[in-house]
Design a protein around this nucleic acid. Structure first.
Lengths: 201, 201
DNA sequence: GACCCAAGTCAATGATCGTTGACATGGCTG
DNA sequence: CAGCCATGTCAACGATCATTGACTTGGGTC
């Protein structure tokens, strides 16, 4: 933001006294930890350590654990990259990632992972309702367009998360014939969701 | 089990000194609590209270929280009601439940709910691998039969759980046109999964 | 009826973690 | 250079919770 700040953060390792930077560092660490472990298993001290700051600063900058979580949640759902998705390649791409690509497509799965963890913690689940509607389901619905976009958006998000859970449970990566069938089926499901309904009844 | 036990449990409210019964009561309460709140948010004292016993008995009968969780997990996935599912009605039935029936179909969703909560807690996720394979994916695979049953079973379980998460997030029940579209689409997905592949490539 | 073991009760311990407020310090203003 | 405020550090508190071991009680056995 401020162009008077020192160029390339100095030696790294130790920030100079920069409120903006530490706040950002905490938020970034929080996003990662909350998405990885969920609200309840995440420890503020770990976030602080990963951000390279003292725990007490979490309170100073965010007020507390729950407020920090909310901030992280909003930050994760802030940039709506949904518009960037490509209709043509989306289904197969997603299927490939879910089938178990060597590297997880962080950028895309991250917000869904966060959502999953947030939804499955009794503490944080109540906070999601509106946010998800506005920042995720809404954009997806627009991206989909056409008849019944609302329901299709729901189903898209739901299935995506379901496959995420399945991948969490699954130990070994899918191989051979099973992988093929998996790819075909999952691709088909997402393709169907992207295309408008055939018989609007 | 034992036909010499007193008929209809006495006045209820207070069990007589019956190891079997208290053990069973603890296990039942544990199944409910763990499925509802997940491992981390579940408090042993609550389980004990709900079971009408002292907390210390949890240790006596199960050894500890983690062991109790494992027992509850196995108990939940013990009876394989999968065989009882009806191919003809299954897709629409499930879709209706997921769309938001007034009463949750406890019997059917319970084990999936348990699975979801277990999978999304970093503490318990590692315990699932084999169990899910043997007690859930296996039976479903057999129930499905045909080509690519393995992959189809995975997808079935995954989507089911995904819809469960979606229902967790969703506040108000689906209504009108959106509900219709939702029902149609979800039914279609499950129907497709039940029917064998069309082009085995 | 006395005895003994299983079943159940109770209080305390120790660890974890969020939160808090007092204190130190760096860097900019005057 | 002196002073002040924002920034950062530290130690401790208080709550929660699983775990533990000593203690009590019931009921079947000899």
């Amino acid at each position: 933001m401020n162009d008077t700040m020192s160029l390339v953060d100095p030696p790294a390792g130790s920030r100079k006294r920069d409120a903006e930077a530490t706040r950002a560092a905490i938020l970034e660490a929080a996003k990662a930890q909350f998405a990885l472990l969920g609200y309840d298993c995440t420890v503020l001290r770990d976030i602080a350590r990963e951000a390279g700051v003292d725990v007490a600063l979490v309170k100073r900058y965010f007020g507390g654990k729950e407020a920090l979580f909310l901030a992280a949640l909003k930050a994760s759902f802030g940039t709506d990259d949904v518009r960037g998705w490509d209709r043509a390649t989306f289904p197969h791409e997603v299927a490939t990632v879910l089938a178990g690509s060597p590297h997880i497509d962080e950028a895309r799965t991250h917000r869904f992972q966060f959502l999953l963890r947030a939804a499955t913690s009794p503490t944080t689940a109540p906070l999601l309702n509106v946010l998800v509607q506005d920042r995720l389901l809404g954009p997806i619905r627009e991206w989909l367009g056409g008849a019944g976009a609302g329901a299709r958006a729901r189903i898209l998000a739901a299935t995506y998360i379901g496959f995420l859970v399945e991948r969490l449970i699954r130990g070994a990566p899918l191989l051979g014939r099973e992988r093929e069938e998996y790819l075909t089926r999952v691709t088909a499901i997402f393709t169907a969701l992207i295309t408008e309904g055939d018989e609007p009844t």
